[in-house]
């Protein structure tokens, strides 16, 4: 916006909507005070906005029922959701399921000797989920980008896995059931240190599986609960099944989504 030039249509609109910076607004006001043409354009634009808003509201507002009933329903549903929120929930309805998970995974790991470092210790990390519908899971952003495991939780994870001096970038503190698939966050039973790049079955390969499963779940091809169960029981087997291969696909090993664990510098 130059001092002496007329205001652009965008400047006028942003001025009306209060989206100009303070100095831009002051400059626009100065110009409007002395320019009839711009003043008239501004009035015209305000009139168009007013007509559109009036048209949009007047037609629909009389048809919208009062909100008291739906507000009460929401209250009731929130209270209900709270009763089954992860913190309270495991002690109740899902404790048997979690136990089943743990037992099933223990049986699995005891059968494969030696233990694969890319699979979690099922006793420590059976996987945990939060209550979430498929619709809700799929309406959230697909990636868990920017999601970092809190430092305290990371320390706890290394302690549980008896890794005394983890090197930065050697591991990703990974969710067994990823949050994008309804996995619980901040739950020690759902996180473990997965080798970031040195192992064949590393976290990037697992990320590719997570993305693929989410696509299948949100496309309605598999059940959310089934996907959670398969990834928790043995994610490598799930990868082999869904990508129809015994080895990780080369492109997947190069897949970069989540960041590695960067060290305990923030202690």
């Amino acid at each position: 916006m130059r001092h002496d030039s007329h205001l652009s249509q965008a400047d006028l609109m942003m001025g009306i909507d209060g989206e100009l910076s303070r100095s831009q607004q002051a400059e626009a006001d100065r110009h409007l005070a002395q320019c009839e043409a711009c003043s008239a354009r501004r009035t015209e634009l305000e009139e168009t906005i007013r007509k559109f808003t009036a048209e949009h509201r007047s037609r629909l507002d009389p048809l919208i029922p009062p909100g008291a009933g739906s507000a009460a329903l929401l209250r009731a549903r929130m209270s209900q959701a709270r009763a089954v929120h992860p913190q309270f929930r495991l002690a109740r309805s899902l404790a048997p399921a979690a136990l089943l998970f743990a037992v099933a995974a223990l049986v699995l790991t005891s059968r494969m000797q030696p233990a694969n470092p890319s699979l979690p210790n099922a006793g420590l990390t059976p996987g945990a989920t939060r209550v979430v519908s498929r619709e809700a899971a799929c309406s959230l952003p697909a990636a868990d980008e920017g999601r970092t495991v809190p430092a305290a939780l990371a320390r706890q994870v290394f302690a549980r896995y008896q890794i005394a001096h983890p090197r930065p970038k050697e591991y990703e503190i990974d969710y067994l059931v990823s949050p994008a698939l309804g996995g619980a966050e901040d739950d020690i039973r759902n996180v473990w240190p997965l080798p970031y790049r040195d192992a064949e079955w590393n976290s990037r390969v697992k990320d590719a599986l997570e993305d693929h499963l989410r696509t299948l779940v949100c496309g309605g091809q598999i059940d959310l609960a089934a996907a959670q169960q398969e990834i928790a029981a043995d994610w490598i087997a799930a990868y082999q099944k869904y990508f129809r291969t015994s080895r990780p696909i080369a492109a997947h090993a190069l897949f970069v989504k989540d960041s590695p664990w960067e060290g305990l510098s923030d202690q």
Binding site: H56, R57, L60, D61, L63, I64, P65, S70, L73, L74, R77, M78, A81, H85, R130, V131, V132, S133, E135, A136, S139, L140
Partner: peptide
């Protein structure tokens, strides 16, 4: 009103709004 502009009827919109606020709560 916004959902209506996307082609969602008011009764359906009420359901969607409930779901959305329950998701917000979680």
């Amino acid at each position: 009103r916004y959902l209506h502009s996307l082609g969602v009827t008011l009764p359906e919109g009420e359901d969607v709004v409930q779901e959305a606020f329950l998701a917000l709560y979680c």
